[in-house]
Design a binder for these strands. Structure first.
Length: 409
DNA sequence: CGATTTTGACCCGCGC
DNA sequence: GCGCGGGTCAAAATCG
């Protein structure tokens, strides 16, 4: 698939353009600053054109000149010579250049930091804008209206948002598994390999929320939803009690008789969050995309269940990752910064005593009834709440933890 | 024309 | 037994 929801799909490109532009502007600013200084034209020092004046090079020049003048001074002991004057002038100017160089470095650092911050803000704002559109109509029950607002041409509707529109797709939360076991996955539309899967996704502002859709041939856009590497067919939608947003039911259509189903529903308290619940085991090999995703989906929910606290990380998009105190959390949770948007994956299908994360099992293991949930957010709210904002993170984490730990494996 | 989505109806389990 | 809620079915609509 090559087309996506305008806002999200264009975002990476948009950001790239912005980045280039910003970098250009920055460079121009840099050079302008350098050449704009009044005393810039004054020095006759032979400076490299590419502004690659390093402190060491300046110092080297200074040292060489000083050494030469010092020799000369030794020969002409008495009166201040022309060389001495030149030497002092050069020293002054080189000192100024050195200071300027340092100032420019500091400026460069500031601008770099500022640029990074602005880029983050831009991404969040764009995401928020899309989210507002989605929220405005999503829970209104008028699907067609929402479709018209979110992505008028149905064919360009990315799976993520197509699911959003029906209460499907973006987020889903479910608490209980068939046998009481459950798996939690905080991930980016990650398909389950087997069992019942709960997961969370955080399509952060970085754009391509539906990256997986890119692998889908354009013609198959309506043929099948491929939001996580698998093909799903919607077979029902229900308005669940306690949640104004409808819950959508999907079946895996990648193979005849594949028992895997998923439910998608918006998180009631934060409609930006989609909770997807997978149930069952695929009776077919997963496609490469799904397998790759699955490989990264080793269980971020373990973090929630393990009691790890969510606190702000060094960067807004970096999850405060798994607490090292929880051994299985570290072994079963993953974070994928390389994803279109940061992805945290928790796999609660494994107890700490079990070895290794639950990734891919083929041929499918006899499904120990597992329950995985998969929550995705299409706004900055979740990143904020998951990765930083104390209030939201607390309530949300508690809610999700309560949901997925209702019947721990 | 085939696959998917939509949506009302139906089924089933659970609590009172 | 009845009502409620959740899950599924299936016919019609939609789309490529």
């Amino acid at each position: 698939m090559t087309t996506h929801l305008t806002g999200d799909d264009d975002q990476p490109e948009y950001q790239q353009v912005d980045e280039k532009r910003d970098i250009r502007e920055f460079v121009d600013f840099f050079s302008g600053e350098r050449h704009g200084r009044p005393d810039d034209s004054a020095p006759d020092v032979d400076l490299p054109k590419e502004s690659s004046i390093t402190e060491s090079s300046i110092n080297q020049r200074l040292t060489l000149n000083t050494g030469w003048l010092t020799e000369e001074e030794d020969r002409t002991v008495t009166k201040p010579s022309l060389h001495q004057l030149m030497n002092s002038n050069l020293r002054v100017k080189l000192g100024e250049l050195k200071d300027e160089n340092q100032n420019l470095r500091r400026m460069l650092d500031r601008v770099t930091k500022s640029y990074a911050g602005l880029q983050t803000q831009l991404a969040l704002l764009k995401q928020d804008e899309v989210l507002k559109l989605a929220n405005a109509t999503y829970c209104a029950g008028d699907d067609s209206q929402e479709r018209a607002m979110i992505s008028p041409p149905r064919k360009v509707k990315p799976a993520l948002f197509s699911e959003l529109e029906a209460g499907e797709g973006s987020s889903t939360i479910k608490t209980e598994g068939d046998d009481g076991t459950n798996n939690s996955i905080v991930d980016n539309q990650m398909p389950p390999c087997h069992g019942t899967l709960k997961s969370m996704t955080m399509p952060m502002a970085q754009g391509k929320a539906g990256s997986m859709e890119e692998d889908v041939p354009e013609g198959s856009l309506r043929r099948a939803r491929i939001s996580d590497g698998c093909q799903w067919r919607k077979y029902g939608q229900k308005l669940a009690k306690g949640n104004p947003c409808p819950r959508a039911y999907y079946r895996c259509t990648m193979a005849v008789g594949c028992p895997v189903r998923k439910q998608v529903q918006r998180y009631a308290q934060d409609k930006a969050i989609l909770v997807t619940t997978y149930e069952g085991s695929h009776n077919h090999p997963l496609p490469a995309a799904a397998a790759a995703l699955a490989a990264t989906t080793s269980a971020a929910a373990a973090m929630l269940l393990s009691g790890s606290t969510i606190s702000s990380g060094p960067t807004p998009f970096l999850p405060p990752f798994v607490s090292p105190h929880h051994q299985y959390a570290t072994s079963m949770a993953s974070y994928s910064p390389s994803s279109p948007y940061p992805t945290i994956t928790l796999d609660l299908s494994h107890s700490p005593l079990l070895s290794g994360p639950n990734i891919i099992h083929w041929p499918p293991m006899p499904p120990p009834p597992i329950f995985d949930t998969y929550v995705s957010s299409d706004s900055h709210v979740l990143p904020g709440s998951l990765l930083g904002h104390p209030q939201n993170s607390h309530s949300f984490t508690q809610t999700v933890r309560a949901a997925i730990s209702a019947d721990p494996a």
